[in-house]
Design a protein around this nucleic acid. Structure first.
Lengths: 330, 330
DNA sequence: ACGCTTTGTGCAAACGTTTGATAAAAAGTA
DNA sequence: TACTTTTTATCAAACGTTTGCACAAAGCGT
C-alpha cells in the first residue's frame, strides 16, 4: 500500500560523486588506501544521499554476518534480561545487532534455534543448560560460541563463580546459629545448579553444618510457593534457593504457612536481580549478569583477544545481605 | 584456531542430486512446479547433506530480510520482556528471527537503531515513546512498522486500552470511600502516560472524585521510593502509579515513611507484571503484553491481513484486584 | 632522460541465492 | 505420424557488496 522508496546503493553514490563503485566501497572499508581528497568528497556525497551499506550484501561476500545470536532458556528471567541489556549495549557501539531467541526451557528448541541462528550470526552467546555437550561442540565448530554459566571442554565460556560468596554466607549464618541448612534446587540438569549444590555441600561441611537437599524444581515463582511445605518439613533454619525468583516464591509460601522470614527461617536467593522488590529484601548472591553479558559480547567481538588462552572466564559473585536472613530461632 | 567447515550450498546439493541449481532452489520455494519424483529425491539428498539455505543470499535477491526488529526503551522492564517473549514465540514458527534493540530511554538512540535495524529487517515492532512522530512516519515509509502503545496517523499500531479498567477501579475505590485520588505519572512525553492521565481525569470526574497529579517520573523503582513523600503530602487516599515497578517502589517508600498499604493508603499499578511478587499484592491493570506482542508480530508477518482496515488495534486491559487496595481510612 | 617505486583508481569476478525466459521431453489430439 | 499442448528442468541474469589484480599518474634518485 505505502510505496517504499528504494534505498540508495553504492552505485548511486559512485555516480553522484563521479568515481567508481569500488572507490566508494573503499571509502568505508579501506579509507587509508585512498587520497584524503576523494575520501572527503565521497563521504559528503554519501551522507547527502543518506547512504548506508546493505548489510546483507556485505555479509554475503565477506562471509561474516552483521549480527550476534543470543540464546536463552527464558528471557522473562531478570537475570537474562540484564545480561541481554548489557550485551546489546556493548554490541551497539560496534554496529552489530543482537538476535534473541527464547527456547522456552526446551532442549529441542535449543537445538533448533541454535542451528537456525548459527547460519546468520557472526557468533553465538549460548545459554543452553539443557542441550547436550556434544551438540554444543557441534555448533561451536560451525561458528564462534561463548557459553554462559556452563563449561564444555574446548568451548569458550563465561560463568559466575558463586562458590566464595555462598561459602561466606554459610559461615556468616553459622555464626548466627544456623547449623541445619537446606538447598532448594533449580533445574536438575543445569550446570549452575550442580555448581551451587557442590559449593554448598563443601562449604557447609567445612562450617560444620548439615545440608539437606530438597526436591528439584524448575525455579519458577509457583515452584517456590509450593516448596514451602518441604522446606518447613526439613526443619532447616536457613534455606538457599537456586534463584531469586524461586526464593521470592518461597518467602510467599512460607508467609502463607504462617512462618515469618527471617524470624522463623532465613532465606537466601541467587542473582540479586529482584532482591529489592520483595519484602523483606533478599539476602542473595550477586551474579553481576551485566558484567557477564558485556564480557561474553566482548569475547565474541574481539577477533582473538585471549580467546583460547583461558577458555573459561569466571566472574566472582559477591554476597549481599538484606533482611531475609537473621539469627537462628530460639 | 578451530577450523570451521564451510556450510553446504545449493550447488553441492545440485551436484549430489544430479540436477541443476535452479531445480534445487525451486524444491524449497516452488515445489509445485516440479515433478513429485524430483522433489522427493532432492529433499532426501538435501537433508542428507544437512543443507539449509543461506538466508543472507536469499534476502539479498528477494529484497525481504529474514528478521524483524523489535525496539524497546528498556528491555529490563517486565512488560517488555513478556512482550518480547510472546512476539518471538510467534515468529519462531515462521522461521523469522527477532533483532532486539534496547534504546536506554534515549530518543537519540531510538532514531539511531531504528535506522540501523530498518535496513536489515522485514519489519519493525517499534516501542519508541520518545521518537518524534515525523521520524516514525519516515521509518514507516522505509519498512513496515507496527507501533506499540502509541498511535501515529497512518502507521499501524497495537495499543492497550486501559480506560475501561481504570474507570472501573476508580468507581470501585469511590465505593470504598476514596474521593481524593492521585496519579503518579511516568515519562512525560509518553503516549501511554497521556492516555492514562486522560482516562483517570475523566473517570474520576465522572465518579465525583478529585484527582491530583504528582510530578513526572521516569518510572523506575527508586523514582517510586522517592515519590512517597509527594504522595503523602497530596493527602490522597489512593494513588494510581504509571507502572507496576513505580508502584512497587512507591509501596516501599511509603513503608519507610511508616504508612501502611492499604490501611493508610491504597496503591494501584499498571501492567500486571510483577504484581504477585510484591507484598501486598498489587491491584493493577492487566495490560496483557503477551497478547500485544503476539498480535504485533502477526500483523507484521501477515502480508496484508487487514493491515490498513483499522490501523490501530486496541487490546482491552482488565482490572485485577489484590491486597494493595482497600477501604479509605477513617 | 630513464627506469623504479609509490600512490590512487578502476575492472571484473565472486558471494549464494531467486526467477523469468527458454529449451527439451512427455503427453494428448487428429 | 505429425502437430499442438502441457509438463519439467536448465540457462543466465540479477541482488549490492568486497577485493585481487591491473594500470595510469606522479615522485624520485641517478
Amino acid at each position: 500500500m505505502t510505496d517504499r522508496t528504494a534505498p540508495t546503493k553504492l552505485k548511486d553514490v559512485a555516480l553522484a560523486a563521479g568515481v567508481s563503485i569500488s572507490t566508494v566501497s573503499r571509502v568505508f572499508t579501506n579509507p587509508e588506501r585512498l587520497s584524503p581528497a576523494t575520501v572527503q568528497h565521497v563521504r559528503e556525497v554519501a551522507s547527502r544521499l543518506r547512504f548506508s551499506p546493505n548489510l546483507m550484501a556485505r555479509a554475503l561476500i565477506t562471509g561474516v554476518a552483521a549480527n550476534v545470536g543470543l540464546i536463552v532458556p527464558d528471557i522473562t528471567n531478570p537475570y537474562m534480561t540484564t545480561l541481554l541489556k548489557a550485551a546489546q549495549g556493548r554490541s551497539r557501539s560496534s554496529g552489530v545487532g543482537v538476535l534473541v531467541a527464547d527456547t522456552d526451557d526446551s532442549a529441542e528448541i535449543e537445538r533448533q534455534v541454535a542451528d537456525q541462528l548459527a547460519r546468520q550470526s557472526r557468533g553465538l552467546i549460548l545459554c543452553a543448560p539443557r542441550m547436550s555437550s556434544a551438540h554444543i561442540r557441534e555448533v561451536a565448530e560451525l561458528i564462534p560460541v561463548v557459553l554462559i554459566n556452563r563449561v564444555v571442554k574446548g568451548v569458550p565460556s563465561v560463568v559466575t563463580d558463586s562458590e566464595p560468596a555462598l561459602g561466606e554466607i554459610v559461615e556468616r549464618l553459622s555464626g548466627l546459629g544456623h547449623h541445619r541448612l537446606a538447598y532448594l534446587p533449580g533445574p536438575s540438569g543445569s550446570w549452575a545448579n550442580r555448581q551451587r549444590l557442590k559449593a554448598l555441600t563443601e562449604r557447609s561441611a567445612a562450617a560444620g553444618s548439615e545440608l539437606v537437599v530438597l526436591p528439584d524444581t524448575v525455579a519458577t515463582y509457583p515452584d517456590g510457593i509450593a516448596a514451602a511445605d518441604a522446606v518447613v518439613r526439613s526443619e532447616a533454619t536457613a534455606v538457599f534457593a537456586f534463584d531469586d525468583v524461586l526464593a521470592s516464591g518461597l518467602i510467599e509460601g512460607l508467609r502463607r504457612q504462617g512462618r515469618r522470614v527471617p524470624d522463623d527461617i532465613s532465606v537466601v536467593g541467587h542473582d540479586d536481580v529482584l532482591a529489592e522488590l520483595v519484602q523483606p529484601g533478599l539476602t542473595t548472591v550477586a551474579g553481576h549478569s551485566d558484567r557477564v553479558g558485556r564480557l561474553a559480547m566482548e569475547r565474541l567481538l574481539d577477533p582473538d583477544g585471549e580467546q583460547d588462552r583461558e577458555v573459561s572466564i569466571a566472574i566472582r559473585a559477591t554476597a549481599v545481605y538484606r533482611g531475609s536472613t537473621g539469627p537462628a530461632p530460639r
